[in-house]
Write a protein that binds this DNA or RNA. Structure first.
Length: 814
DNA sequence: CTAGGGTTAG
C-alpha cells in the first residue's frame, strides 16, 4: 500500500511543473519512479487531493479488481474533480483487456480534463486514444472541441475538424454546435457560419451558438438578424437566446431592440433569471438608461457580484462616475459582497475620469492584497487611471511590470504619455511597434497623431502618413482629420490641404480642422472661403467651427469679419459663445490696440475668466506696451495657474524692455521659488532627411563655423536696415546689449542659416521652434527672406510665420 | 452510463 502511494505521489515530481509531468505521462503512458518527494502545492493544482478517496481507489483495483463497479468509480472520481486519482485508476483500468477499447472511459477522462480546464491534457488524451486504436465517438468530440476552444488553437481545432469528415461525424448536431462555438470564440466567424450553413438539421442550440458567436466577434447586427430569423422560422427563443441577443443590443446600443427583448423576457417568464436580469441591466447601461437599469437592479434578489459589476460598469460608461464609486461602497456595505477583478476593472475608469487618485490607489492596493495581479486587463486599467490622474511615473511603472502586454495596454501607455504632454516619450514608445507582434489600430493612431503634430518633423509626419495609408485605416475620416492637422502643425499646409481634398467622407470636424489649419498659418482668407464652402455643402457649423474661424480672423487681423462671425454665431446658429470664443475675440480686440475695450469685454463675459482669457489680455498688453495691464493680467493668471512659466517669461521680458531690471530679478527669484524653469528655446530644421536641432548659442553642430560665418555676412548686409527699423515697437536699442541671451545667436537664426547653406537656391526653408519667436529674430527673418529671395517658414508655439520678400504672413502681430 | 449554447472587462 505504502509503495503504491509513493509511486503515485512521486509521479508528479519528475519534472518541474505538474503540467509537464502530466503531458509526459499521457504521451508515454508510463510513470517515472526515480523522483523526489512530492511538492504538495503542485499536486493541489490538479484538484483537491483526497487521501480517503485514493485509498478507495486502491481498494478497487488491488489486489482483485471488481470489474463492474470500476467504471462507476472512475466517473465519481472525475466528477469530484480529483484528476490525479482518476488518472491513477484509469491507468490501472486500461491495463486490463476489458477496458482498453472502452470508448466510454476515455470519454470520461477527456470530459474530466476539459471541465477542469486541463485543455492541453484533454487534447493529449484524445491523441493518445487514437494512438491506442480507440476511435472517438459523438460523445468524445464535443469535449475535445471545447478543449481546443479553451486552447484557442486553430490548428488543433482544424485537425479535429478534419478527422470528423473521415469518421462521418461532421454532420452530428452536437459536434457541429461545438464547432460553431469554437470558431466563433477564436474569431473565425466565417468558419462558424460555414459549419452552420452546411448543417442538415439545426436545433435551438445551433441558433443560440450563432447568436452568441456573432456577439463574440463583435457583430451585434448579424446576431440580432439571426435572433429574428430563427423566430421567423418558428423556433422559440429560450433564455440563452435572450441573453445573447441582449448582448448584441448592448454592442450596437440598440435601445429599442433591447426594450423589445425585455418585453419578450417578461412574456416568456424569464424575468427572475439572474443572468437574464444582468444582461438586461447591462443593455440599459450601455444604452445610457441607468434609471431603467437601477429600477430593475433593485428588484433582483439575491444579487450577485456580476449584477453589481454590471451596475458599476454601467454608471462608469454613462459618465456617472460618482454613482459608480457609490455602488462599489454599497456593494460592500449593503450586500456584504467582495469586489472581484471585474469590479476593479469597472471602477478604475471612474477613478480616472474623476482624477480620484486616492480611490484609484486603494483599488490598486486591494487588487494586490487579493492577488489579482498580474492580470493584463486590470493592469491596463491601472495604466489608464494613473495616466488620467497625471501620475505618469506610476503609469509607467504599472506598464513596465506587465508580463503580457498587448495592443490595448500599449495604446493606454501611449495615450497616457500624449495626454500628459510627454510627446517625445510617446513617439519613442510608438517606435516599439516594430518589435511587437500586434498591429496598431485606430486608437493607436488617434493617440499618436497629436504627438506627431506637436513634436515630430515633417519627414516623420510623412512617414506616419504613409504607414497609415498602407494600413486598413487609410480612409478613416477620424484619423484623416488628425493627419490634416498634423501636416498643418508640421508646417506643410499644402499637404494638409491635399489630404483634406482627397478625403472620401468629410465630417464637420474635417472642415473645422482645415479652417484651423489655415488659421495657424495666418491664411485667414482661405479659412473664410472654406467656411462658406462648408456651408454650401450643407454642413452645420458647431462651436469648434467658430473657434477655428475666430482664431483665423484674429491671427490674420481680419477684425471686421471677426466681429461679424462672432455676432452671427448666436444670431444665425444659436450657439452661445464659450470661453474659447471669448478668448479669440480678446485676441482680436488686443490686436487693434484697444485695451480699454478688451477690459470691458472681459467684464461683460458671462463666464468666469480663465487663465487663457487673462493670457489674451497679457499678450495684448505686451504688444501695446502697457505694463500696468500686463501686471494685472499676470496676477490673475498666476492666481489660477501658479506654475504658468510663459506668464513669468512674458512679464519679465516686458520689464527688461522697460529697463526695470530689479523687477526682472524679482520675477527670476519667484520662478526659482516656484521651482519653474524657463523653457529652453530650441529650433529644428530638416536637411536632406536629417533633423538638425539648435539651441541658443549652439556650437555643437559640425558646421558651426560655417553657420556663424553665413549669419555674420547676412547680418552685416542687413545691419543698416536693422538699425533703421529696430526702434521697433517698444525697444530702446541699447537694451539688446544688456540682455544675457543675445538675440544675435538665437536658435532660429542658426537654424535658418544652416537651412540656407544646406538647400538649393530658391527652395523654401522650414524651421519649427518650441517657443514664441522674438521681435529681433522676426525682423531678421523678414530681411533674410528679402535678400536671399527665399520663402522662410517658421512655426513657433502659436502660429506659422511665412516670411517672403521682406514681409511676414502674421503682419507683425503674434 | 457520457454531449452542445449564457451574465460583468482595458
Amino acid at each position: 500500500m505504502a509503495a503504491t502511494l509513493s509511486v503515485h505521489l512521486t509521479y508528479f515530481n519528475d519534472s518541474n511543473t505538474p503540467q509537464k509531468a502530466w503531458h509526459k505521462h499521457i504521451k508515454t503512458g508510463r510513470t517515472n519512479r526515480n523522483s523526489r518527494i512530492v511538492n504538495k502545492q503542485k499536486v493541489m493544482k490538479f484538484g483537491p487531493f483526497n487521501r480517503t478517496q485514493l485509498n478507495t481507489v486502491k481498494a478497487l483495483v488491488e489486489p482483485e479488481p471488481s470489474t463492474c463497479s470500476l467504471t462507476r468509480a472512475l466517473c465519481n472520481i472525475v466528477d469530484s474533480g480529483c484528476m490525479e486519482n482518476a488518472l491513477y485508476l484509469f491507468e490501472k483500468m486500461i491495463q486490463l483487456d476489458t477496458y482498453i477499447r472502452n470508448t466510454y472511459i476515455w470519454n470520461v477522462m477527456i470530459r474530466g480534463c476539459t471541465n477542469n480546464g486541463l485543455f492541453r491534457e484533454a487534447v493529449d488524451f484524445y491523441c493518445r486514444m487514437g494512438f491506442e486504436g480507440v476511435q472517438g465517438d459523438n460523445f468524445t468530440y464535443p469535449f475535445v472541441i471545447k478543449s481546443c476552444t479553451g486552447l484557442l488553437s486553430l490548428m488543433e481545432g482544424q485537425k479535429v475538424h478534419a478527422k470528423l469528415f473521415k469518421i462521418g461525424l461532421d454532420l452530428d448536431v452536437y459536434v457541429s454546435n461545438s464547432l460553431i462555438v469554437m470558431y466563433a470564440k477564436m474569431g473565425y466567424i466565417e468558419f462558424a457560419e460555414r459549419v452552420f450553413r452546411e448543417m442538415p438539421v439545426r436545433d435551438l442550440v445551433s441558433w443560440n451558438s450563432m447568436i452568441s458567436g456573432y456577439v463574440a466577434s463583435g457583430d451585434g447586427c448579424s446576431s440580432l438578424m439571426c435572433f429574428y430569423e430563427m423566430q421567423a422560422l418558428g423556433m422559440k427563443p429560450d433564455r440563452f437566446s435572450m441573453i445573447s441577443a441582449l448582448g448584441a443590443c448592448s454592442l450596437e446600443y440598440r435601445l429599442h431592440c433591447g426594450k423589445e427583448i425585455h418585453c419578450q423576457v417578461l412574456k416568456c417568464g424569464f424575468e427572475l433569471d439572474v443572468m437574464v436580469q444582468t444582461s438586461i441591466i447591462d443593455m440599459y447601461g450601455k444604452c445610457d438608461m441607468m434609471d431603467y437599469a437601477e429600477r430593475l437592479f433593485d428588484r433582483i434578489s439575491p444579487r450577485n457580484v456580476v449584477a453589481w459589476n454590471a451596475m458599476i460598469g454601467g454608471y462608469a460608461q454613462s459618465s456617472h462616475f460618482l454613482e459608480s464609486l457609490a455602488f462599489l461602497r454599497k456593494m460592500q456595505d449593503g450586500d456584504k459582497l467582495n469586489p472581484d477583478i471585474i469590479t476593479m476593472i469597472n471602477v478604475l475608469p471612474s477613478c480616472a475620469q474623476l482624477q480620484a487618485l486616492l480611490e484609484g490607489k486603494s483599488v490598486h492596493g486591494y487588487a494586490i492584497r487579493k492577488g489579482f495581479l498580474p492580470h493584463p486587463v486590470l493592469e491596463t486599467a491601472l495604466v489608464d487611471m494613473y495616466g488620467e490622474c497625471g501620475k505618469l511615473d506610476m503609469a509607467e511603472r504599472a506598464y513596465g511590470r506587465m508580463t503580457k502586454k498587448n495592443l490595448i495596454s500599449w495604446n493606454a501607455m501611449l495615450a497616457a504619455y500624449v495626454q500628459n504632454g510627454w510627446n517625445n516619450k510617446a513617439l519613442v514608445l510608438f517606435q516599439d511597434i516594430w518589435h511587437q507582434p500586434f498591429k496598431p489600430d485606430a486608437f493607436t493612431f488617434a493617440s499618436i497623431l497629436p504627438a506627431y503634430s506637436e513634436s515630430a518633423t515633417l519627414r516623420e509626419g510623412k512617414q506616419i502618413h504613409g504607414f497609415i495609408m498602407k494600413s486598413e485605416l487609410g480612409t478613416n475620416t477620424f484619423i484623416l482629420n488628425s493627419i490634416v492637422y498634423m501636416y498643418a502643425k508640421c508646417g506643410d499646409i499644402g499637404a494638409a490641404r491635399e489630404v483634406f481634398d482627397r478625403m472620401l467622407h468629410r465630417d464637420v470636424i474635417s472642415w473645422n480642422t482645415i479652417i484651423m489649419a489655415y488659421a495657424i498659418h495666418g491664411f485667414g482668407r482661405f479659412s473664410v472661403q472654406l467656411f462658406s464652402e462648408m456651408k454650401e455643402k450643407g454642413f452645420k457649423p458647431n462651436e469648434s467651427t467658430f473657434v477655428s474661424l475666430l482664431s483665423s480672423c484674429s491671427i490674420s487681423g481680419m477684425v471686421e469679419e471677426g466681429w461679424e462671425y462672432y455676432n452671427s454665431m448666436k444670431r444665425d446658429y444659436g450657439i452661445d459663445p464659450g470661453i474659447e470664443h471669448y478668448g479669440c475675440m480678446l485676441d482680436l480686440i488686443g490686436r487693434t490696440g484697444n485695451l480699454e475695450l478688451a477690459k470691458i469685454f472681459i467684464d461683460e463675459i458671462s463666464l468666469f475668466p480663465t487663465a487663457r482669457i487673462w493670457g489674451s489680455l497679457l499678450t495684448a498688453s505686451r504688444n501695446n506696451q502697457n505694463i500696468e495691464l500686463a501686471e494685472l493680467s499676470a496676477r490673475h493668471i498666476l492666481s489660477l495657474e501658479h506654475d504658468n512659466t510663459g506668464c513669468y517669461v512674458l512679464l519679465s521680458n516686458m520689464y527688461a524692455e522697460a529697463g526695470r531690471w530689479e523687477d526682472v530679478e524679482r520675477l527670476k527669484c519667484l520662478m526659482i521659488k516656484e521651482g519653474l524653469e524657463k523653457t529652453k528655446g530650441c529650433s529644428v530644421v530638416e536637411i536632406n532627411s536629417r533633423t538638425c536641432r539648435f539651441i541658443n548659442n549652439d556650437r555643437s553642430h559640425a558646421e558651426t563655423n560655417m553657420i556663424y560665418d553665413v549669419l555674420d555676412i547676412i547680418m552685416r548686409k542687413i545691419g543698416e536696415d536693422i538699425f533703421v527699423h529696430s526702434f521697433t515697437k517698444f525697444r530702446p536699442l541699447d537694451l539688446r546689449k544688456n540682455r544675457a541671451n543675445s538675440p544675435q545667436k538665437h536658435s532660429v537664426r542658426l537654424a535658418i542659416s544652416f537651412g540656407l547653406i544646406s538647400t538649393t537656391i530658391g527652395s523654401p526653408i522650414l524651421v519649427r521652434k518650441n517657443t514664441r519667436i522674438c521681435e529681433d529674430c522676426h525682423i531678421v527673418a523678414k530681411k533674410i527672406s528679402e535678400i536671399t529671395r527665399r520663402e522662410i517658414i517658421v512655426g513657433d508655439s502659436k502660429v506659422f510665420h511665412h516670411f517672403r520678400d521682406g514681409h511676414c504672413s502674421c503682419r507683425d502681430y503674434w
